[in-house]
Computed example of a mutant assay.
Amino acid sequence: MEVKKAVIPVAGLGTRFLPATKSMPKEMLPIIDKPVIHYVVEEAIASGIDDIVFITGRSKRSIEDYFDDSPELENHLRKKNSENLLKIVQDISSMVDIHYIRQKEPRGLGDAIFTARKHINDEPFAVLLGDDIIVNEKPCTKQLIDNFLKYGRSTIAVEEVPREKISSYGIIKGKAMDDSLYTLEDIVEKPKPEDAPSNIGAIGRYVFTPEILDCIKETAMGVGNEVQLTDAIRLLNEEQMIYAYRFSGKRYDTGDKVEYVKAIIDFALKNKDMQEQIEEHIKSKQMHVNDNSRSGNQKNCRPESIVK
């Protein structure tokens, strides 16, 4: 029942970040000096995963290059005696066993996961979406794995989502077992807020029993004319209990422009080499905003006698 394999789908087109993603995978967008996908892989490794399969598309070659050896760069760093950078580069290519399977056309998250069925080989596995960075001392995926080991059932990560974003998530109906754990009663893909069963949404972390693959195979095209993982989860829930786990940690949806910028700022503020300068910049911007606000108030408070 150990969970040692993970599927990371990265075949999406990244249209929310066009034109940058016309030639660059959204998962390779940097958070300062490390791409988003690096943080996702680090979470998988910290959760005990030692075998990762990326589901890629034809425009995702740079992800493969990133996790591969780079002899030319390594030789250059050796000649420059840049030992610290050399170690960083070498560590990236030896992080974990990584395999690549290409999704021939974008047919949805469910279809992407299904392409890994032969690699999964009837074992439980984790799914980590490449858009989400989740920061916590105990990785989110590890939290799900621990729940899986306790109950032996598929577990999906959930959190409260704002009403205006409900239509972007799979929204659950669940029965609370405690403050952080629900038994899943239903899950609806991207409902209108007024039709949603709750404000608790599934985010990009899952641990599945292998039976989910049979359910994906039986799933018809759904929302967006794609094979929706949410629909397969509903089928699986008819056969075996599924748990929804309210994880601990701070999540950044880096597929959203505002959340992406927030991630960069927060990570910069945690970087001891950058923290002081970034804090000073933020303070100066705030002072500028306050000065403008006061200036605007003064203009609006002129005596009526001099207003023509």
Rank of each mutant, 00 (worst) to 15 (best):
D97Q: 11
L236Y: 00
S167N: 14
V53L: 05
V3P: 10
N237W: 01
F267G: 06
K217G: 05
A6N: 09
R302A: 12
D186R: 09
H99V: 03
P193Q: 09
L184I: 10
R107D: 04
F114N: 00
K22T: 10
E137F: 06
Q240E: 14
I216C: 02
V223E: 09
E280N: 15
V135K: 10
P25G: 04
N121A: 14
V307L: 15
F267L: 07
E259V: 07
A244V: 08
N81W: 07
G48K: 05
P9E: 02
K60E: 06
V227I: 15
K257G: 10
M287T: 13
S167W: 08
I145C: 07
D111E: 12
I171W: 03
Y39K: 02
E42Q: 12
D131Q: 08
E2L: 13
H76I: 10
V227M: 01
R107L: 15
A46D: 10
E189M: 12
K283T: 11
G201R: 00
F267I: 04
A202G: 00
H288G: 11
L184R: 00
H76V: 08
K34M: 08
K80C: 06
I282A: 13
G249F: 06
I200Q: 00
L77A: 01
Q228R: 15
G170A: 15
A112L: 01
R61N: 15
R102E: 14
F267V: 03
K26Q: 11
N75M: 13
L129F: 07
I31T: 04
K22C: 05
K26P: 02
